[in-house]
């Protein structure tokens, strides 16, 4: 693919991709390779500092921080990916329907979106968690729904602009309409923007998962996620600051990697950049 090659040519994006691959590999393979049980309690080794037995020390219950971090990465990345995906699916669907159909569907859809816009994203998510009770599934649902309005508005705007392009007129004159027109001319036109936006959502979702976890509204103990670990470590922040700092650093690293990729994608998909390549 052209875009991937162009992305790889951007140095910062390359760093992001390498980081992301590392993180993903850790999340997928790590739990299988690590010998320790992330939930194994060892009261004799509470708040232990880094050692050969516990690379990153232990928490208040003597659980191995590194093992929990790796297991938690799986949970955090999984939640982030699924909520970004859910937000994308809902946002694109709503945006395409309102933007393409126009008329009263558009007006009604956008008023609902405006309503959601009045409330901060995280507050929407908290509200949904409050309705269904905290769990990993609820976190995904809550974040996915909370991201939908912004995404829908973005997609709607793009669809409205693509819809008025001359090549869409040309297809209409040929007799294309409805689903065919969407498939051939309109959806391909929103792919670049959707790619960038979904990448950005991944970053938001990682932070928001941590925030929900910090508030105790995310993944519930004893399961580990980065947010849940930050929350658990908070009480001991003066005795054992690494318990919050290490998962916090993991979140920063993951978000950093995703933002690098997002910025790179934006450049790689820039129509002016592709025009330059196309013209030569």
């Amino acid at each position: 693919m052209n875009v991937i090659r162009r992305l790889w040519r951007i140095r910062s994006a390359r760093v992001g991709v390498v980081l992301a691959v590392l993180l993903l590999t850790t999340a997928i393979l790590g739990p299988m390779l690590l010998p320790l049980d992330p939930n194994a309690i060892d009261v004799r080794a509470r708040f232990a500092g880094p050692s050969t037995a516990h690379w990153l020390g232990t928490d208040d219950l003597g659980r191995d921080t590194f093992t929990r971090l790796v297991h938690g990465s799986r949970m955090s990345l999984f939640i982030a990916a699924l909520s970004a995906l859910l937000g994308t699916l809902l946002g694109v669907t709503l945006g395409v329907i309102t933007g393409f159909l126009g008329g009263w569907v558009d007006v009604a859809g956008m008023r609902v979106v405006d309503l959601f816009f009045a409330i901060p994203t995280l507050l929407v998510a908290i509200g949904i968690v409050a309705l269904f009770g905290p769990s990993a599934t609820t976190t995904i649902l809550a974040l996915g729904i909370a991201y939908t309005p912004l995404y829908a508005r973005l997609v709607r705007g793009t669809v409205v602009s693509v819809r008025s392009r001359t090549y869409v007129d040309a297809s209409r004159v040929l007799g294309a309409r409805g689903v065919r027109l969407l498939r051939t001319d309109i959806l391909p036109g929103i792919v670049p923007i959707a790619l960038v936006q979904t990448t950005a959502l991944l970053g938001f979702a990682l932070v928001d998962e941590a925030s929900l976890g910090f508030l105790g509204l995310g993944v519930q103990p004893p399961d580990a996620s980065w947010g849940q670990m930050i929350n658990a470590g908070r009480q001991f922040i003066f005795q054992a600051p690494w318990l919050t700092l290490i998962p916090g650093f993991a979140v920063i690293l993951a978000v950093f990697s995703i933002n690098l990729i997002g910025d790179g994608l934006r450049d790689a998909l820039d129509p002016r950049a592709s025009q330059r390549v196309g013209d030569t």
Binding site: R165, T166, Y167, D169, A170, G175, D185, P188
Partner: peptide, 22 residues
């Protein structure tokens, strides 16, 4: 649709009238 088979259009700007992704 039948009418569209009978009547077609050639557009002014061939840079805009062809979908760049197809």
């Amino acid at each position: 649709l039948a009418y569209r088979r009978s009547v077609q259009m050639v557009f002014q700007n061939p840079y805009l009238s062809l979908n760049p992704r197809r």
